[in-house]
Amino acid sequence: MQKFFSNRKLVIAIVVLIISIGLMSVSVAIRNKRATPPLIQQFGNDVAGAASRVVAWPVNGLQSATNSVSDLLNTYEENQKLKKQVDQLAQAKVNAQTASAENKQLRKQLKLNESLSDYTAVTANVLTRTPSSWMNQLVISKGATAGIKKNMPVMSQTGLIGRIVEVNQTSSKVELISSTSSSANKFAIEITNKAGKTVNGIVSGYDKSSGTLEMGSVTSNVKLKKGDKVVTSGLGGITPKGLYVGTVASVKQDDYGLASEVEIKPAADLSDLTVVTVAE
């Protein structure tokens, strides 16, 4: 023991400890700032991203191969179901086209050029997921060169999944909505019930045990039911209006009994993400 904890080793251990804690504090402070990471960090991330792409390619290929086999087995059943849906969809599509054309005309008459619901979509591949039990982060294959900026919302094919937290030149990091870290930015959302009344609020948390999002401190009298649609409200200006988040799972009183809390079932499956869309 005498030899193991000699003076020199003790000094080295303490110096290493101090360096480590110092590095961590500095990087956490930088991470929480609004700007992109320092240039050197961006460069490192891009190099690592390129290498990561090489490794991710065969792995993702293998995954899509197994997926297509299981898809093939379910084809018949799915085909029956989809045929029914297609008939309804054609009708809905024509309706939507007419409505959006009319909307454009009316906006022109009102001289409203930019509305909250306008955005362009950038599609990106998911390269990796942070192998950690606490950080629900993805690395995607598009960065500043594709026009991505910090805090932009990210969607899968079915709904909202998170937002951009770090932008490099050719890759960026996405923090999932299931992230419970205190530094996570919250989305402004609105719920519309069957009668057409809306309730505004903010995503205040994520319940891991039920896999639902929480919208707390709701004092509105509007009655919400299970299945009511939840979309982003566009308030705050960063997130466009009308991105699909999910449906209401339940409404209950909060812990103090003063306001109610809405639980929202996210539309996207957060554990099966290969391609995502960033809304600019």
């Binding site: 990561s52 490794v55 993702n60 390269l127 990796t128 997921r129 039990s133």
Partner: peptide, 22 residues
Amino acid sequence: FLDGSLSNVFAGNLFSYPYSSV
């Protein structure tokens, strides 16, 4: 890089509530 890549592919199995395996 396999750590991250496999974590994403098997996210449904590795990070199923309440367990998370790294």
